[in-house]
């Protein structure tokens, strides 16, 4: 019997700023390898060659992103439910592959004020000249460790540890107030229905 999956921000769906949405349960695998060419050909996406960038591609596992985390460390991100086949696919390559899908959930942030909201708690320069599309940084947002991807002109993807997700959701609501991005529901206390 399998337990029902409940995303870390399930109770926040209706309370998040209108510009923020959760993309739960993405397949995430932490890869440490120097044999990234072989892994790239399995996944159909070339691994990033420069620090603080990510790459995207499509292959037998659908759309896959590869995020640079360190000189020999990457995070492979794909649609939900693919962690086992991806791990099996990479098994022939040299290196370590660890399923870390449950470690983080994913938020998509968009809109013209996205940089203003992030600037409330993130010291990294996110001006397009300094952080163009394709940038991927690990940093702190409101003292919480995050992975931040610049995925479009005004679109960011943010990966946060599951246990920090509610705190960060509350912080994002607070930081979004002055831009008029919150819905009618006032954000007070923890949402009901949280386990």
């Amino acid at each position: 019997m399998t337990a029902e999956l409940v995303s870390p921000l399930a109770a926040w769906t209706s309370r998040l700023p209108s510009t923020v949405s959760e993309r739960p349960f993405l397949s995430q695998l932490t890869v440490r390898s120097s044999d990234t060419a072989a892994m790239g050909s399995v996944l159909g996406v070339a691994f990033p060659s420069r620090p603080c960038t990510f790459t995207e591609g499509s292959g037998r596992f659908g759309d896959v992103s590869v995020l640079w985390l360190g000189p020999d460390e990457y995070l492979v991100v794909a649609e939900p439910g693919l962690q086992v086949p991806i791990e099996e696919g990479l098994r022939a390559c040299k290196g370590s592959v660890v399923d870390t899908s449950a470690q983080r959930t994913t938020l998509v942030l968009e809109g013209p004020h996205v940089r203003d909201v992030l600037a409330h708690g993130c010291s990294v320069d996110l001006h397009p000249a300094a952080a163009p599309v394709g940038t991927c940084v690990q940093t702190l947002l409101a003292r919480t460790g995050i992975i931040l991807q610049v995925t479009g002109a005004d679109t960011f993807t943010l990966l946060v540890r599951s246990s920090f997700a509610e705190y960060l959701a509350a912080w994002l609501c607070d930081a979004s107030v002055e831009y008029g991005l919150l819905g009618e529901t006032p954000v007070t206390g923890r949402p009901q229905g949280h386990r």
Partner: peptide, 10 residues
Amino acid sequence: PWCGPREEAE
């Protein structure tokens, strides 16, 4: 040396 300038708290 990998990521460039970041704040001290990191």
